[in-house]
Design a protein around this nucleic acid. Structure first.
Length: 585
RNA sequence: GCCCCGGUAGCUCAGCUGGAUAGAGUGGCCCCCUCCUAAGGGGCAGGUCACAGGUUCGACUCCUGUUCGGGGCACCA
């Protein structure tokens, strides 16, 4: 419908150009009106042309209308306010949407607007050093929803999790597991301040004991001989202490056994994260190992490529990437003076590999605390000769949890944080998924736990689901009352739908496909959330005002067509959000 | 000090990339079930869009400054 109007206005503008009333066409905006008294669609082009034409906008609007061909789908056109051109659709042309939806079914709203462009969305990618917490949950919900939305409009999307399975944090994890194993084996010592203290470490240690019994045990004085003092002791330093312990673990265990402990920790936590996300309805196409970058020599390759391009310089024994040449605020080390590659070097290699795998567009979803890395990663991409615009880095702001009006305190190291799993168990998957995408991602969010789990009208999830269940229930009534719904007869009598509640519901249904399109292209799932709530409101309101089951068979059938179409849209929209559409509540 | 995000109704947030009298939900007050689920609906009250300039036909929206809140500024991962 929008396209039809666009075409009409465009033709009229061409006419005005050939009449040399105006010189050029501005970007045409045909938008849906907020207020029904302004018609169905409106166009502001007359006001945009006022300056170049040197005429009052209302005069230009009139000229446009005069130049416009008539079209059966438009009942009338008006000039309003400062110069808006308002379009009122003919009733028959608005009604077609009902049949379109019923025919389209579960796939209504989908399109191929993106033409199968290959996109990768990388999200969550939390270090596998412990369970996911509620902060990761927002990234997970947002990424998964965005992927679904983008697929719906024709992007060829792969979801990827970058597993940070290399580096110091993982060694701290392995060492923590080993130390807990030693404790379980009866060795007595003080657990390092900087070690991972969560209960899950004990679980992993326990499983190692059950497989390897005492074979990884060493006496305490052998282990702690010449280890730098821990924080809290004389001259103690928690970083040096833990690093010494890592070195000691490798010495005593030997590479093979150390790797066994390391892998036990990594695999156990990774499995947990996988299951957690799967239960949250978040599916990945790839789990990409950081370690594999080094194993395949990709880091060296990336460094070489930067060197060849002349963007690298040696200073004080370290190798620096001259990122300031590409807009970063300072240059960054990629190979340390001890010969080790930095995390950033892996990141460069990783992004290079993403492009090598043929993605035309990359989306990274990061926590807001990583914004400092945006400039350097983009710089690296520029330096490697790829185009920066192809990488979109979306920063998701933090979510604060509230319970009984109080902010829930979280701290990671101590182990007293709220995990995603706990959140799911408390409020349920549907509410969690919904609440996380209710706000746009750059907005700080207050997550009200009490509201999310309340099974009442206060809760927007239930409100929308209830609209769906309510329609199902009405349809159920038909069989109970031994009544029927004749779809074809309904379709022939849609013109009976003249009540205000009906026309506004129909107009809302007509906006669904646009909403999906816009949500996907703008990367803003919250637009769909708001749409669904508005749709649910219209349905509830209609329900209260009019009886669907009606003695007038034609009206009865037409109304059922309308609510069946509404149910379809509610279901399709909820499905895109990863939220269930229950038939009974 | 520099950088990113935000400041809209008592509270939580929208505001369609600059358009018509600023919208929802929630909380407050009032009303509606002999009727398809009241997990619902209808109404009233509630605003100097943080502040000050600027850009223009027109600004909550764009620019500059100020201010308040959150986060970030490693040869850590």
């Amino acid at each position: 419908m929008k396209e039809t109007i666009e075409k009409l206005v465009d033709q009229a503008l061409e006419q005005l150009i050939s009449d040399s009333m105006i010189e050029s066409k501005p970007a045409l905006q045909i938008t849906r009106t907020k207020d029904a008294s302004h018609g169905d669609f409106t166009c502001n082009v007359a006001m945009m042309l006022a300056k170049q034409a040197g005429k009052p906008p209302r005069d230009i609007a009139q000229a446009i209308i005069d130049a416009m061909q008539s079209d059966g789908s438009i009942a009338r056109v008006e000039i309003a306010g400062p110069g808006f051109i308002n379009f009122f659709l003919a009733q028959e042309s608005t009604l077609t949407i009902i049949n379109d939806i019923i025919e389209g079914g579960d796939r209504f709203g989908e399109s191929n607007a993106a033409g199968n462009e290959k996109v990768q969305i990388e999200f969550v990618s939390a270090n596998p050093t412990g369970p996911l917490h509620v902060g990761h949950g927002r990234g997970a919900a947002y990424g998964a929803t965005l992927a679904t939305l983008m697929r719906a409009v024709g992007f060829d999307v792969d979801c990827e999790y970058y597993v940070n399975d290399a580096g110091r944090q993982m060694n701290i994890l392995a060492t923590s597991v080993w130390l807990r194993y030693l404790e379980l084996s009866g060795i007595e010592f003080t657990f390092p301040v900087n070690g991972y203290k969560g209960d899950y470490i004990f679980d992993i240690a326990e499983s190692i004991r059950s497989h390897h019994a005492d074979s990884f045990v060493f006496p305490a004085d052998t282990i702690f001989q010449e280890i730098h003092a821990d924080e809290g002791e004389d001259g103690g330093d928690k970083e040096k202490h833990i690093d010494d312990l890592i070195t000691r673990a490798r010495q005593l265990l030997g590479n093979d056994n150390y790797q066994q402990v390391f892998k036990a920790g990594l695999n156990s936590i990774l499995d947990d994260i996988r299951n957690d996300l799967e239960d949250f309805g978040v599916h990945y196409d790839n789990w990409y190992s950081e370690q594999s970058l080094a194993d395949r020599g990709l880091i060296g390759k990336a460094v070489e490529q930067l060197q060849r391009a002349g963007h690298v310089e040696e200073r004080n024994g370290a190798l620096w990437f001259l990122s300031t040449k590409f807009g970063d605020e300072k240059d960054r080390v990629i190979i340390r003076d001890n010969g080790q590659a930095t995390y950033f070097a892996s990141d460069i290699a990783y992004h290079m590999d993403k492009f090598d795998r043929g993605y035309q567009r990359l989306i990274n979803i990061w926590g807001a605390d990583h914004h400092g890395y945006v400039a350097r990663v983009k710089a690296a991409i520029g330096a490697l000769g790829a185009s920066e615009e192809k990488l979109d880095i979306l920063l998701v702001q933090f979510a604060n949890l509230y319970r009984s009006g109080e902010r829930v305190q979280m701290s990671t190291r101590s182990g007293s944080f709220v995990t995603l799993r706990e959140l799911r168990e408390e409020v349920g998957k549907d509410a969690a998924r919904f609440f996380y995408v209710m706000r746009k991602c750059e907005q700080h969010m207050d997550f009200d736990l009490d509201l999310a789990k309340s099974q009442s009208n206060d809760n927007p999830v239930y409100y929308i689901q209830y609209a769906h269940a309510r329609i199902c229930s009405v349809i159920e009534q038909l069989t109970e009352k031994q009544l029927k719904h004749d779809l074809e007869n309904g379709s022939n009598n849609l013109n009976l739908l003249v009540e205000k509640h009906e026309t506004s519901l129909i107009s809302k249904l007509d906006a669904y496909a646009d909403t999906v399109h816009k949500s996907a292209f703008n990367e803003e799932p919250h637009l769909l959330v708001h749409y669904l709530r508005e749709l649910a409101t219209l349905l509830h309101s209609y329900y209260n005002a009019h009886q669907f089951i009606n003695e007038d068979a034609d009206l009865h059938d037409a109304r059922f067509n309308l609510i069946i179409a509404t149910r379809q849209i509610l279901r399709n929209g909820l499905t895109l959000l990863g939220v269930s559409a229950p038939e009974k509540m």
